[in-house]
Design a protein around this nucleic acid. Sequence first.
DNA 1: GAGCGGGTTTTGAACGTTCAAATCACGCAG
DNA 2: CTGCGTGATTTGAACGTTCAAAACCCGCTC
Lengths: 359, 359
Amino acid sequence: MSRASAARRATINDVAQAAAVSRQTVSNVLNRPHLVRAQTLERVRLEVERLGYRPSQAAQGMRSQRAGAVGIELNAVHRGASDVAQLFLTELTVAAPRFDVHLVPFADAGTFPAVDGYRDMVRRRLVDAFVLSDTHVGDTRPGWLLDSGIPFAAFGRIYDQPDLTCWADVDGAAGTTQAVEHLHARGYRTVAYLGWPHGQPASAVADARREGWRRTAGSLGTLGPESACEQDLADAALAAGALLDQLQPGDAVVCASDLLALGVVYAASARRWRIGPDLGVVGFDGSLTASRHALTTVQQPLADIAAAVLRRITDQLTGGADDPSGQLLVPTLTPGPSTDRSTATAYIPLPAPEQDHRR
Amino acid sequence: MSRASAARRATINDVAQAAAVSRQTVSNVLNRPHLVRAQTLERVRLEVERLGYRPSQAAQGMRSQRAGAVGIELNAVHRGASDVAQLFLTELTVAAPRFDVHLVPFADAGTFPAVDGYRDMVRRRLVDAFVLSDTHVGDTRPGWLLDSGIPFAAFGRIYDQPDLTCWADVDGAAGTTQAVEHLHARGYRTVAYLGWPHGQPASAVADARREGWRRTAGSLGTLGPESACEQDLADAALAAGALLDQLQPGDAVVCASDLLALGVVYAASARRWRIGPDLGVVGFDGSLTASRHALTTVQQPLADIAAAVLRRITDQLTGGADDPSGQLLVPTLTPGPSTDRSTATAYIPLPAPEQDHRR
DNA sequence: GAGCGGGTTTTGAACGTTCAAATCACGCAG
DNA sequence: CTGCGTGATTTGAACGTTCAAAACCCGCTC
């Protein structure tokens, strides 16, 4: 219970003195062990351990002219319709140590992503680079960062700069393909699609997800009708209702997002269709919404995306091997009760139609 | 379009040279302007602006032996049942610049909050302090941080160290009191309560929220029945069903969280009760769930809590005025359609009981 | 016995900032 | 004219680390 252990932390000199070597030898033990005689190595390592020495980030950053940090803006996240951003941030944070960086989130009180925030972070040398997380058409940030020579990588394609390669994204078509195949394997007959209107929220994403469904269902002969709506629950339930008019029990719906899938669940419940047995529903994103509502969903490989993004950033920083291409990562389908034909799960407790005997 | 502007950023010496003064004068202009002659002040400021100079975080941290950063763990958040954590993180991030700090999130691949992670962050002098964000009974972190002399402050009371004061929390009782008063004003008759079982997730939180309901409804003469369930949607719908058996249209339910409120919505829909006109429902937290499902909710004052937590931390760091007491912040009720008696909102499209004429 | 070379270790310098102390300019009293 | 005080500015030093270069040690060769 040494209450003052934060008083003064060990520096490289403390270790050097304790091990009776010079500071540079201690540095070598940590960074270039092969240069150090085995016996010395051990002695120094012992002292490092004993004193709990870790090099100071500030001093290292000073020497190397690197912050060892990556900035990420939280603004856009704030009132986003999806909760994926939070999961992505967590995965980034988990992956960061593997790339010898840490994250520095920042946000503006205003709603717009202000380039000023980015600029000040680099000027103060608080970060070396940025992760952009919801790129959209007309996004000014990639262009600006590029012009300023500030490294960055994005989760999501960079629409306005098609030649840029510093991004990683989910292969939406592969995702909906899996969804359709899963539904086919489970014996659902026709597979409909509920997506976003063209140009929403980022048309390339919407197009890819829809395309995977269209192509795969087409070749499997299960192509059903489609509809589109905003990323909004009430809107989705409405659109889903119209879509269900064209379906029969035993059919299924693939959705562009988990929220839309929830809308389908609502609309189906209104028709007394049992989710699973009567109607298969697949969402997209692997969001909290999906797990909370027990939906089969196409799970984004967020950990892989986080790693891919950080790799692109560190590659730029070290000037190392430039992996030249943007990367599409394949999501995986997570089956849930919403595509289980044999077991009816009570998604929403429905009104009993008439007197009903259950104990 | 100067593509090389990241090449070399201006240092204090660059500014000094440009303004024909010494580096210390530049430093004084920024930190102690009253020591500098007005004419010099202006000249230096001009150059600072022209060169876009900002002091290097690393160098300042080196000199001051401060990281200027606060750590926050994202682990617990990961698969949490609530999405409040994300909003809180955003508010912390927005507030941080006002306290001259930035945040450094960290996470372990493992599920348990490893004290090791905390220790290494301070040893590397990456952070000066920590924000703890979901304290629970039996949490080992506060005790350990205290013993290690590492400053911290928590969102949520510190249960195992009742004498500790470095926390800020929501006044749960005040929140449910507002909920009950709101329902009373809106003309709902009996007000029931759906909460967490004693000891869940942190009993003090659960107890406070329940107590506000009990006391206020008691004194208003609207006290109804209560029930409890886990923080889980299916469980909530089940418990809510049993609760509704004891209620009549015109009554209302106050819930310990937005998720539970959603469960009530489901159970009520199953009875063909219209949310709002037939049953008032109030959630708690102001989470994404509430806004997405148009629920009246008790909004946590996350911005205030973030500021309070950071203030406590910076007070500890500067050794300044120790605000000695933990702080309970009053939430505000955000009315939504779920407590609107006059307008029926289609929460869930319900099956038409029989042929029904609407255009 | 001086010189060489490779392995190991140490010394000097620098990264950018700010505190503490020294220096400078200047007006004014003795 | 000298000395003093005050306000403005500059110089030296230090924070902790790592690169570059110098120094050291030791066995070996000529």
